[in-house]
Design a protein around this nucleic acid. Structure first.
Length: 508
RNA sequence: GGGAAAAUAACUCAGUGGAAGAGUGUCUGCCUGUUAAGCAGAAUGCCGGAUGUUCGAUCCAUCCUUUUCCCGCCA
């Protein structure tokens, strides 16, 4: 008999099915055992009742340990209290393999330990949900582009030129000559767009930046569409539709996953509204506190934030004190004590996070007040700006100096490059960077010289301007940053199955 | 590249210059429906490594190793 997947249980309501998977959780008593089975497509509770299955099967069920693999046969029953809406009344059970001393218990663990066990950690419910969302995002990206006539074309991973300086490139040996792992497929994307019109690349990207933060990986996946005959305005329209499509798909088809992640979708729901578009200079006004939104400048907003955080800290401290008094009274059962202790620990952690935020805000205030017009935004500037609006913001027309050499200069706004950054709300910052490409070959050559880049490795790129030059645009999106934002994750390492980051591990 | 903190049981952590602690998990028994809240009992440690101070160091000092967090750079 072919087995059924948990995701499809609703089609089998009231019928007998065979499920195969692993034990995520167990509770047992004298005559009944609750097994939570996971099979990759979901989680379902299986009830093993001694009166239904007999003593032999019952004993087997009792013997199962966390992450043991097994098969159950049983009847599907609707139960709205259940996580997926269904449960299984077991009639038979066979064991594939008993797991002994599975290291990841249902309780608290530190990140170091979890990262050491990343190969097992992926089985946990939260990680399961993140990977499902990641997959939905990937699928919806392909769907979005394919439905609009874009071709997926792949840029090479080995590249010969150290165009942007070797410090951020991984060097390897390519049959005796130095080669670098790709940092971006952008220039190749342009060549491919001239061949196929609308293209996108979707591949791994490598950056040897020595930055160890919650937003950086050394190896990550990037999507880079490139469109012939698109100007900056069309590029921004596409970015907006694209992000709306992806977020919409996740909201529609990952309800269970977002629930597991306890994701508050308040800000994601607002993504369907038109994005805010503003020129760099206007964004700077907002950051510096020269312009108010809803009657508040950035400075006032940060000051209010700080006050709110301090209030929250003191209310949590009060909560802790009350619980400590209750525990000291001695009138609690052991279970209630545990419950309160856990709550207190959680509150203490929350306070630690809040205190960190509270120390950050004065620094943000400082950096907002002292922001130098003409410079690129720092992480805090992005956060400040997006907090004012609470929805995605596209900042365009950047000072030419802070953007890459291939960005087109705006003829009506000299000194500014037609580049655009999409800033995600909730402090997630830049998730998309793009723009219209420079078409003037002399300006390009000038920029390459100005950046002191070797001309010879760009000859093929300049050919694109020599033969059938056209206006064209594109953008790049870091998949993991998008996953982190949509899932509401604290750290980018959870967005990819096996993260590779500076100072991090190569194993597992 | 700059800064901060940490290393004690399988896990999360407390603790003390003079015989190593809690909670969780695990194991054993009891409880017929639980979803991190039932009850009782048990096992578990070279207190990260090296050197020094000391009668005595898990605790103090120095160095090393490893990890976590923050800033800069970026997607």
């Amino acid at each position: 008999m072919a087995h059924t997947y948990i995701k499809e249980l609703e089609k089998h309501d009231g019928h007998e099915v065979v499920l195969k998977g692993w034990l995520a959780q167990k509770r047992d008593s004298k005559a009944i055992v609750f097994l939570v089975l996971r099979d990759g497509t979901g989680f379902v509770q299986c009830i093993v009742d001694i009166n239904t299955v007999g003593e032999e099967v019952f004993e087997m069920a009792k013997k199962l340990t966390q992450e043991s693999s097994f098969t159950v046969t049983g009847t599907v029953r609707k139960d709205d209290k259940q996580f997926g809406g269904y449960e299984i009344q077991v009639t038979a059970l066979t064991i594939y393999s008993l797991a002994v001393d599975y290291p990841i218990t249902p309780k608290e663990h530190g990140t170091g330990f979890l990262m050491d066990n990343r190969h097992l950690w992926l089985r946990s419910k939260r990680q399961w949900a993140i990977m499902r969302v990641r997959n939905t995002i990937i699928y919806s990206i392909h769907k979005f582009f394919q439905e609009r006539g874009f071709m997926q074309m792949d840029a090479p991973i080995f590249t010969g030129n150290a165009s942007e300086g070797t410090t951020t490139l991984f060097e390897t040996d390519f049959y005796g000559q130095p080669a670098y792992l790709s940092q971006s497929g952008q220039l190749y994307g342009e060549a491919m767009a001239f061949a196929q019109g609308l293209i996108y690349t979707f591949g791994p990207t490598f950056r040897a930046e020595q930055s160890k933060t919650r937003r950086h990986l050394s190896e990550f996946w990037m999507i880079e569409p490139e469109m012939a005959f698109y100007d900056l305005a069309m590029d921004m329209d596409l970015i907006e539709q694209f992000v709306q499509h992806v977020v919409g798909e996740v909201l529609d088809s990952c309800k269970i996953e977002l629930k597991v992640l306890e994701r508050d979708t308040k800000f994601l729901d607002r993504v369907k509204e038109p994005f805010i578009r503003m020129k760099y200079e206007v964004a700077v006004d907002h950051i510096q506190g020269l312009k108010a939104v809803d009657g508040k400048t950035s400075i006032q907003m940060l000051e209010d934030d700080l006050k709110n955080i301090q209030d929250e800290i003191s209310s949590k401290q009060k909560d802790i004190e009350e619980r400590e008094v209750k525990m000291a009274s001695g009138a609690l059962t052991k279970g209630e004590k545990n419950f309160n202790q856990n709550k207190i620990d959680q509150l203490k952690n929350d306070i630690k996070d809040l205190e960190e935020k509270a120390t950050n805000i004065p620094q943000w205030l400082n950096s907002a007040k002292n922001f130098k017009r003409g410079e690129d935004f720092g992480g805090s500037d992005e956060t400040v700006l997006t907090r004012m609006f609470g929805q995605p913001i596209m900042v365009y027309n950047w000072p030419r100096e802070v953007k890459a050499f291939y960005m087109k200069e705006d003829e009506t706004d000299l000194g500014y490059a037609k580049g655009v950054d999409l800033l995600a709300p909730e402090g997630y910052g830049e998730v998309v960077g793009g723009g219209e490409r420079e078409t003037d070959i002399n300006k390009l050559i000038g920029k390459i010289e100005e950046h002191k880049l070797p001309m010879d490795v760009f000859e093929w790129y300049l050919d694109l301007r020599r033969y059938g030059n056209i206006p064209h645009s594109g953008f790049g999106l870091g998949l993991e940053r998008l996953v982190a934002w949509i899932c509401g994750l604290q750290h980018i390492r959870e967005t990819i199955p096996f993260p590779r980051a500076f100072g991090g591990r190569l194993m597992p």
